[in-house]
Amino acid sequence: MNASNAFGDYFALFGLPRRFAVDPTVLESAYLDVQAKIHPDRFSHMPENERRVAMQWASHANEGYRVLRRAVPRARYLLHLAGIDPQIESNTAMPADFLMRQMLLREAVEEAQDDADVEALDGLLRELRRDARAMEQQLAGDFDEHGDLIAATARVRQLMFLERLQEDIGSALETLEN
């Protein structure tokens, strides 16, 4: 991740406190304000060298908005700023009840996919989104109230698990539609 570099961190760029809980309207409005000031189109009368600097700033702001807008990248970014590597690839330990539920969900997805059951897939997607939202609430507690980065790291890994399953349902739906 392109985290702290010469441009400064994303929370500072958008004038936001370094917290997990982010008001999406405040973030969006800060992002648009920043872009309105630094976008290369605002400097279109200037020579290429200058415009390139504006382009780099605008790229940085776009990446910052992408990272802060959604829960998983935002949580990973907070961990990164705290110097914690969530070891997404290597550490796959999960609580047993979480894993059990995921296995059941995955089976249900495969079954719905085999039956070409779009409605069932849509239902599963809604269920997963609900799970994810609940987990995001808990993440806000881990980060902002308890400052428990160990708990947050474990939860981010679980949330990523949920996201992957949502993506799989998305591509299954796409295949069925075409």
């Binding site: 400064g8 961190d9 500072a12 760029l13 004038g15 304000d33 920043v34 000031k37 630094i38 400097f43 200037m46 020579p47 060298n49 200058e50 390139r52 600097v53 504006a54 700033w57």
Partner: peptide, 29 residues
């Protein structure tokens, strides 16, 4: 043009930081 590339980039960077600072971004590093 080539010789002043870095100078131009530094000036532009200064301009952008000033533009950003005009906002509530006083804590910008």
């Amino acid at each position: 043009n080539k010789l002043t590339e870095t100078f131009a980039a530094r000036r532009m960077d200064k301009t952008i930081r000033a533009a950003l600072a005009g906002q509530k971004l006083s804590d910008l590093k």
